[in-house]
């Protein structure tokens, strides 16, 4: 079982991140992007921003959920392979923030998908975002150790 262990370990050591903008004001989005770029450089921790949810382990969601994109969010979440961790970045994703009284806003992504880490701030600072992602990586590690993961050595080719 050496290879299986190795794969599990490497999956939790280098989680890939997918970002979905769920109706945010762009403030948190550009802070997520700032985490990827040289000054905050998340790739130091082996985190790569990917566009495809099927490649990703961590989902960062920014913004309030509205009536139109709740299905898209659910879809992105369902497409991600198990185990997965969801980070709600910014207060809009946590609770709906200042927009929670608007008619088209559900208020908080935890009404649609389960959330593991909440990062407060309007917008959340890149440092806070890195903290949140580190915590998400810890939770991912824990989920890997708790659960029998369907990774067979054969499927790796």
């Amino acid at each position: 079982m050496g290879l299986k262990e190795f794969v599990k370990k490497s999956f939790s050591k280098s989680p890939w991140v997918v970002h979905y903008d769920c109706g945010s004001c762009n403030g948190c989005d550009i802070e997520v992007l700032a985490c990827m770029t040289p000054i905050y450089d998340m790739e130091r921790f082996g985190m790569v921003n990917v566009g495809n949810p099927k490649h990703a382990d961590i989902l960062i969601v920014t913004g309030t959920v509205n009536e139109k994109n709740k299905d898209v969010l659910k879809n992105v979440y369902d497409m991600m392979p198990d185990p997965k961790v969801v980070v709600a970045a910014g207060i809009c994703a946590c609770s709906g923030g200042i927009f929670r009284d608007c008619y088209n806003v559900l208020g908080g992504i935890d009404k649609v998908i389960p959330v593991d880490v909440y990062v407060p701030g309007c917008p959340a600072k890149p440092e806070a975002m890195i903290d949140g992602l580190y915590k998400a990586a810890q939770i991912l590690k824990e989920k890997y150790s708790r659960k029998e993961v369907i990774v067979s050595a054969k499927s790796l080719g």
């Binding site: 945010s24 004001c25 762009n26 550009i30 139109k68």
Partner: peptide, 27 residues
């Protein structure tokens, strides 16, 4: 996909508070 409908918040928040809402139209 980003429609929040924040223009109607003007009827719920007073004109001083609306400054902080319109700032969050776009970051």
């Amino acid at each position: 996909f980003v429609h929040r409908g924040l223009e109607t918040l003007a009827q719920k928040k007073d004109f001083n508070q609306m400054v902080y809402v319109v700032e969050r139209v776009c970051g």
